[in-house]
Design a protein around this nucleic acid. Structure first.
Lengths: 228, 228
DNA sequence: CTCTTTCGCTACTGGTCGTAGCGTAACTCG
DNA sequence: CGAGTTACGCTACGACCAGTAGCGAAAGAG
């Protein structure tokens, strides 16, 4: 995890620095948890744009100043509040790569159906286009953590003989990133932009498409063609 | 187009209703264009979160009240301001489906690299999770309009014999939607969430993956498997 | 017991949203 | 040309929010 042990240090830390300062009154762990919980509750009721720091503070029975001592702004707080939801994602072992992908797609869709995740995710990504620190926080707290699902899925598929083992580690990493962007991107776009349901049917068709693409061509290697 | 002829009517219209009211002073077309232009400029300089209606008004040399007479809020204004950018997308005819997809992916990536598109797109989608009217406006002004690219690409591929003709029109529509979500979703995720460059190499590998997926299995038909 | 840091509280500045009310400008119709 | 209708620019306003400052008190560490 990233932000469960409130590890003080400079103004706004909340991740990294496992054993930082030692003296003085420690930050309250209960308050930390209460704030994140209150943030999620406020997201459900109010959504991103109408969520206010004062409201979160009063819900968490905490002074508004305490919020600003721990998070620089609304975006960073919301990232931490929502990040933990994504850690609930699991890769089911259903016997085939297609079925595994379908399973995780449905889980991801269920997560995106929760109002607090729905409204927060896109908003913080939007903010991150103009905030390097926020982008890094999203990456470390959410995105990079969930790549585990792709890596695990590939391992299983390789063990089953559904996917070839890749020799070049750089190539393997690029492919994992590609698969991650395709899966996460497609589901998010379907659920939030197209606003159409991600049901078992869609998830199955999509999984089939992806697995076909992965296994048909002999592992698409890089060509570096001319641009536009 | 949707919002070029400022077609008055009730408080906030700006799309639909081609020839509505007839009497009274007509809305200024110059003001309309100036406002959208000013909105884009403000997005470039300030980004979504720091963009204010007052600022847009003064840039467009227009009273703030005029903005509110035409758009209900910031989100709707920004959707109209940004929508026109997406109409510049073209499907190049490069001789093969893979190359065509790669070309449009690179164009889309270039569009998402523009600060005004980058910061606005995710923000309005985030808002739309709690605003049905806004969601509909995004759909009609941006999303549905760009599905033309998928339909055209499929037509060309079918003419070349790269893709089979689909008999069931419902099935064909579902597949087009799927492809649209996969392409747009993957590119957006790569560019804005993973924040990694969408270069010719990535676009080519992705296109290969997608085309393989489309042509390998005999047109993935729906199975409707059990959920989760 | 002292030092250090966090805490809750109050108060404040600077800024935004969105609206109301007014007199004026522009256009249509008869 | 005149009457009716609608948009416009302007000013002012109320409500609300972000983020900060300064205080005394509390909670641990050594």
């Amino acid at each position: 995890m990233v932000a469960l042990m409130p590890s003080s240090r400079p103004p706004h830390a909340s991740h990294s620095t496992p054993t930082p300062s030692r003296t003085g009154r420690p930050r309250s762990v209960e308050a930390h948890a209460a704030i994140l919980e209150a943030t999620r509750a406020a997201l459900v009721e109010l959504g991103w744009s109408k969520l206010t720091m004062s409201d979160v503070a009063s819900r968490a029975r905490v002074a508004k100043t305490t919020l600003y001592r721990r998070w620089a702004n609304k975006s960073e707080l919301v990232v931490d509040a929502v990040a933990v939801l994504f850690d609930e994602l699991r890769l089911p072992d259903r016997g085939s790569l297609t079925a595994d992908i379908q399973g995780v797609v449905l889980q991801f869709a269920a997560l995106l159906d929760r109002p607090e995740a729905k409204t927060a995710l896109m908003a913080v990504v939007a903010e991150s286009t103009r905030d390097e620190a926020l982008r890094e926080r999203i990456r470390s707290a959410i995105v990079d953590r969930q790549k585990r699902l792709v890596l695990l899925g590939r391992e299983r598929a390789q063990a089953r003989g559904e996917l070839p083992y890749e020799e070049d580690p750089e190539q393997a990493a690029r492919n994992a990133d590609l698969i991650f962007d395709v899966i996460a991107g497609a589901v998010v776009h379907r659920a939030l932009v197209s606003a159409e349901p991600v049901d078992g049917d869609w998830a199955h068709t999509f999984s089939l498409l992806l697995v076909n693409g992965l296994t048909a061509g002999p592992a698409p290697t890089l060509h570096t063609p001319e641009r536009t």
